[in-house]
């Protein structure tokens, strides 16, 4: 007969082996809050530059829905990519690869929040805006995450469209229709995404290579990526200035767009001519990556200020 232990409970496995419900903070982490900041900001700016003023409560609901939709797409992205996230230093501590959350919870959270954000946006503003939000979530999850990311080095070029929808959603939430301005704002983010992500991928290239993600520097090499950054920067700058040239904005936006774009071109040029040596820290690439985020904040922020001044 087996001898009973005086403290049978103490024989339980260590806490790391026992299933624990995920902490609520891990659900927040699942929504990629830092990425969401820019998404919410551009969505809010799209709403504010629209020619129709939305009731503050409805405007708040619209921005909340854009945030929830972006968070839902991020959760579904992490649900699908937990295997490659585990292989990359930059993403290994996310809730799923770190084992702090089970995959089913992330899936339910993402799907539930997707439906909720789309329906709430439709009820609060209009169903055209809700439709574009649904398309943006589906585009990020199905086209970028599932289809393109693991298959082609052009993943970020086409996938960039997913992040370009928020200002368009903001505008449509206010007006109920599309116009030249929201299409230009869409094009601006769409063309901005490749130089932004390729600058990042240059200094985390080994991470992507280890995870088997065919980012451009992994497939075509650093030199080609630097050339691609320069080539994509030029049409992006043209689109950044276009709202002013088309008289859709005032001179404040025009001057700011030209000045900030010249800095962008200068940083892209430095990346183009940079020949990294061991241990130089890839400074030009990091500078371009962080400046590109600032560039978006400045352009969209000034767009709103310019509208208010008019």
């Amino acid at each position: 007969m087996e001898t009973m232990s005086p403290e049978p409970s103490s024989n339980l496995a260590s806490s790391s082996e026992l299933p624990m419900p995920a902490d609520w903070r891990d659900f927040i982490a699942l929504t990629k809050p830092r990425v969401m900041t820019l998404v919410v900001f551009t969505g809010l700016c799209g709403l504010l530059v629209a020619p129709v003023t939305l009731h503050p409560v409805l405007a708040f609901a619209a921005v909340l829905c854009i945030a929830l939709g972006a968070g839902a797409a991020a959760a579904l992205n992490q649900w699908y990519e937990s295997d490659i996230d585990a292989k990359m230093k930059r993403t290994a501590q996310r809730p799923l690869p770190a084992g702090r959350m089970d995959r089913q919870s992330a899936l339910h959270f993402g799907v539930g929040m997707s439906f909720f954000s789309v329906i709430l946006l439709g009820v609060a503003t209009n169903w055209f805006a809700a439709f574009i939000l649904a398309i943006s979530i589906l585009f990020y999850v199905m086209i970028y995450t599932v289809w393109l990311k693991r298959r082609t080095a052009q993943n970020i070029v086409i996938g960039g469209a997913a992040g370009a929808f928020p200002p368009m959603i903001g505008w449509v939430a206010a007006t109920g229709s599309l116009d030249v301005m929201p299409i230009l704002l869409f094009a601006l983010i769409f063309l901005w995404t490749p130089p932004h992500f390729w600058a990042l991928s240059l200094y985390v290239r080994m991470d992507y290579a280890n995870a088997g993600v065919p980012m451009l520097p992994v497939i075509a090499g650093e030199k080609v990526t630097r050339q691609h950054i320069a080539v994509y920067t030029l049409p992006m700058v043209a689109v950044a200035v276009l709202p002013w040239l088309l008289h859709l904005t005032g001179p404040l936006y025009g001057i700011t767009a030209i000045a900030t774009s010249l800095i962008f071109i200068w940083l892209a040029w430095r990346v183009l001519i940079h020949r990294p040596v061991e241990g130089d820290g890839m400074k030009p690439e990091k500078q371009l990556f962080f400046y590109s985020i600032l560039y978006q904040f400045i352009l969209f922020g000034v767009l709103v200020v310019d509208k208010v001044m008019q």
Binding site: S15, L18, P21, A22
Partner: peptide, 18 residues
Amino acid sequence: MNELEYTAAVRARQLARA
């Protein structure tokens, strides 16, 4: 971690989520 501590930890986390 024994059974009591584990149960308390799970309850605390569930309460925070609730």
